[in-house]
Design a protein around this nucleic acid. Structure first.
Lengths: 341, 341
DNA sequence: CTGAAAGCGCTTACAG
DNA sequence: CTGAAAGCGCTTACAG
């Protein structure tokens, strides 16, 4: 008995054919209870496990999903956006619940990643997660669709997108933040984050913000918007730029918590107090948001629900069931950073 | 051309045998350059990818590592310890760099997880990560060793442990914290965290702390130690217990940052200021540590290096090369939470 | 440098 | 309910 046991070893030991072993192990009803018991005993005795490679090859199925996490190559290699880390955790759990394994891969946004996993049969489907230039991204999505690869992506849900997207309600999240800041008496609300179709999630948040201002009869001042990607450093720099520009503002809506945390540092460096001098809000509700000082008002994206919906949708796709893109609710979380006065 | 292309399709298209296609794709030197080019062209034309299941079955190798992350079932399901999340990120990167895929699985600590992945040939080796009762854990490690499964674990490095362990220098980390607090004039230093052989990582930190106190000629007061597991809630409760116990203390060394953050909240609830009334330090240097108020003095565990060493060691094990357990350096990070006076 | 052939360990019609 | 047999898509001695 050298090397791992195979189903043939089990067959010998249990005194049946190898085919019967396979049937018993796959739970076929066509197996006598007594036979099944003998096989089970042999399996335990030899500590046998079905070889997944052989099984998958034969069944043309892998029982595995792949998660591709992209990052902009500019991002600091050693720190992953905590929001995605949290998504990763919930996706892992959701997969485990459904009996699927999860293969994880980090991808440079620029690389030619489309569907390595699915094409090489290592995964039955792919979950796409990450920020990056959507317009560059779109091509790859179309290629995936053309290849018939099963995939779902986390991101903005817009009309005419290739494939299935799941995202949170960025528009209403942005709206809720702006509305809240307006209610607190803010009138000059800056927006920190890219606001173009290259970054549709941020753009939706921006559109919500614009909409709330307009509802309140307030002019949107383009000088109050400053591009930033979702890192603390970029948030710091954007805030710094805005401060030195010398435009007046009484509130800052950062398109992500990481940006907000960077902005908080820049404000503090310049002697501006939050929330007394400037109200501040972020987006995502990462764990850190409640620990910074002051605790950060933000919008909760429910990563647990998101993970479940992503996995469920992907499994439906794999089973060729109909699947729609879906927008998940966003929830305003008010903390001290926005409570002026 | 229905379904995915196979190597036979490529062979037809390139006018060679299937065996030659396989050789060309595996980079065998035994293939004519011109032939290789023709095959490459066919591969691209049909968007062919080697079927990993077939390839792995034949080669008896998977090109995949598995990461098992356990958690105590008591831990809040929706939040994973950020330290492990960070490790996960760095392990993923290290795997990618070595050309391996990473399969991830969360495990209840209590379950019978030993080596499912390796036994079913889905992974060539396993990385074990997580907290939990070491004494319960040990049995399973021994089983793994007995089965000949390749694995490395993150944790305390002690004599006579089954298998290969990689861990940070918990003893000297704990020593450094205590020494630092003593230098700041603290004399009554509480320790928050389990201090028994059930949790050897915490225990090593505790031993470092005890050693530093003894070096300084200070009695170790058992009333100043309170058990806690690595969660914010547990830290809060332990701190609360200690405060209501009414023993005097001028510093708190929490066995992890999460515990420290919980303790910080409890101290604040009781009107004790950090660092003016009580100096506070944690362990791990999770991202949050620098964002709490005041920023937390702690010990940095270099997760990037840890991930690399774990993956390198595991790959060596798989290649049957000699591997030793290793202790990685810990580094004191002084921030405001410990700076009294 | 290339091809024909065996075989990795399963699963599943097919025949009984 | 069970067995004999084909075959999933590769890789790799073996022979040339």
């Amino acid at each position: 008995m050298k090397g791992k046991a195979t189903s043939i070893d089990i067959a010998h030991l249990a005194g049946v054919s190898q085919a019967t072993v396979s049937r018993a192990l796959r739970g076929s009803p066509l197996v006598n209870e007594e036979t099944r018991r003998r096989i089970q005993a042999a399996v335990e005795q030899l500590n046998y496990k079905v070889d997944k490679n052989a099984s998958n090859l034969r069944r043309m199925y892998s029982g595995t999903l792949a998660l591709l996490l992209f990052e902009d190559p500019t991002a600091d290699e050693s720190h992953i956006n905590p929001f995605f880390l949290s998504m990763l955790g919930s996706i892992t759990r959701a997969c485990a619940q459904q009996g699927y394994d999860l293969l994880i891969s980090f991808q440079q946004f620029s690389r030619d990643w489309h569907a390595d996993f699915a094409d090489s049969k290592k995964a039955d489907g792919i979950i796409l997660l990450g920020y990056g230039d959507y317009l560059a991204y779109r091509d790859k999505l179309e290629k995936l669709v053309a290849q018939g690869t099963c995939f779902v992506r986390w991101g903005a849900v817009l009309p005419d997108q290739p494939g299935v997207s799941i995202g949170c309600d960025n528009f209403h999240g942005g709206y809720a933040i702006a509305e809240h800041l307006l209610e607190r008496g803010c009138r000059r609300i800056a927006f920190l984050g890219d606001a173009s179709s290259h970054y549709p999630e941020f753009f939706e948040r921006y559109r919500g913000y614009v909409d709330a201002l307009q509802q309140a009869g307030i002019m949107v001042d383009p000088d109050l918007q400053e591009n930033a990607e979702s890192t603390e450093r970029s948030g710091y720099e954007a805030m710094y730029t805005l401060i030195t520009r010398g435009v007046g503002f009484d509130a800052v809506f950062a398109a992500s918590d990481l940006i907000a945390i960077g902005a908080l540092r820049a404000l503090s460096v310049h002697g501006l107090r939050v929330p007394q001098d400037v109200a501040l809000a972020g987006f995502d509700d990462i764990a850190m948001a409640s620990f910074v000082n002051p605790p950060l008002t933000t919008v909760l994206q429910d990563t647990r629900q998101a993970g479940e919906v992503l996995v469920d949708s992907l499994l439906k796709l794999i089973r060729a069931e109909p699947v729609e893109s879906a927008i998940l609710p966003a929830k305003l979380i008010v903390r001290r950073s926005s409570l002026r006065g």
